[in-house]
């Protein structure tokens, strides 16, 4: 595999992703989740940190060689709560990657455990040479 699928377009919205809005109609924050990508004998494995995202809030799609992950964060903080100290903000996660042609799109598998997404991007089996019959005229 020569091309790494690391061109990111974090804030591009596609029509398949719902317009991010909260209950009051204000736009929600969008974050670029940190990722790891490493190579295995079978292909590539991608990990993404998506704290606060459960499997229902996760949307993973491949379209035109672009893998897009969108995670909607759900929180159940009571409205009466007062923030005393804030290091992180609540928002959704969005990131997309360009897949190389060597990735077998049909065999991509994903699993979300404890807020970490693991995506397996297997390498497509090498195309076998195909003989073209030449008919004599």
């Amino acid at each position: 595999m020569t091309e790494s699928p690391d061109r990111t377009q974090p804030h591009e919205s596609t029509s398949l992703i719902p317009a991010p809005e909260n209950a009051t109609g204000e736009p929600r924050l969008l974050f670029n989740p940190p990722i790891d990508i490493y190579e295995t004998p079978d292909g590539l494995v991608l990990y993404a940190d998506l704290p606060g995202v459960d499997s229902e809030g996760l949307d993973l799609q491949v379209q035109n060689n672009r893998l897009t992950l969108f995670g909607r964060v759900t929180t159940d903080v009571p409205a009466s709560a007062q923030m005393l100290h804030q290091e992180y903000h609540i928002g959704d996660f969005l990131r997309s990657f360009i897949l190389s042609d060597e990735v077998d799109h049909d065999r991509i598998q994903a699993k979300l455990t404890n807020g970490v997404l693991r995506v397996e991007l297997p390498r497509a089996p090498r195309a076998k040479p195909r003989r073209i019959e030449v008919s004599g005229g």
Partner: peptide, 10 residues
């Protein structure tokens, strides 16, 4: 810093 924390008062 890891991890990021928020502290709320109810």
């Amino acid at each position: 810093r890891f991890p990021q924390v928020n502290l709320l008062e109810l």
